[in-house]
Write a protein that binds this DNA or RNA. Structure first.
Length: 197
DNA sequence: TACGTGATCACG
DNA sequence: GTGATCACGTAA
């Protein structure tokens, strides 16, 4: 069952740990169905977080983050990579959760074709890898996550607190002391995360 | 460890 | 307009 929008209006830490971690991300793009279990993610917290794109206020790129939760924030970076986030919280609170790694579940042959490699463990173990595998790009920026192109389904059993690994976010050294915030979460022991915590 | 690659943003 | 930067991935 699709995760309803109301779930994404809750506290971002609660959403990250109890709603999104362990949930399944689906895409049906170009008529091809793919899905993967979310095993790693990071929090970006609006105007109190130097690492967040919304830290300095609203711009054309980050505008979707200022909308109400439950839509996709997809942006393009390093001249070649698309990054997929879930917008969290109500209108005006620009919080987002970056999906960093998936355990491939459905459409693995499609993912292999899109990524051009054959190793299941390397298909979705990074934020820019999983967007390629799932067929997600900036044209999906702002899409409603109850849509029939990209959506999320709850974990059958939530991830227990003891099973959650906590670390600092990747690639945000520019954020100064905010780079040390423990806002990266992963499922302990997963072979599909982007980098050991 | 180095660099490709192009949108974005802060400056004028 | 222009230049520096970037929530990464790959090869080496």
């Amino acid at each position: 069952m699709k995760i309803p929008k109301a779930e994404f209006l809750k506290d971002p830490f609660v959403v990250a740990r109890t709603v999104l971690l362990g949930a399944t991300l689906y895409s049906r793009i170009g008529g091809r169905l793919t899905a993967g279990r979310i095993v790693e993610l990071e929090l970006y917290m609006g105007n109190c977080d130097r690492a967040c794109h919304a830290f300095k206020g609203k711009t054309q790129r980050n505008a979707v983050m200022f909308e109400s939760g439950g839509q996709a924030y997809v942006y393009f970076v390093y001249g070649m990579h698309n990054m997929f986030n879930v917008v969290i919280s109500d209108t005006g609170q620009p919080n987002a959760i970056l999906i960093r790694a998936l355990e491939p579940l459905k459409g693995i042959d499609i993912m292999i074709a899109r990524r051009g490699i054959n190793d299941t463990r390397n298909l979705c173990n990074g934020p820019a890898k999983l967007t390629v595998a799932m067929g997600i790009s900036t044209k999906h920026n702002g899409i409603d996550l109850e849509s029939d192109k990209i959506w999320l389904e709850s974990a059958t059993t939530p991830i227990a607190p003891m099973e959650i690994a906590i670390g600092t976010r990747i690639g945000v050294e520019y954020a100064g002391e905010d780079a040390a915030l423990p806002w990266r979460f992963a499922i302990k022991g997963s072979k599909f995360i982007s980098k050991a915590i």
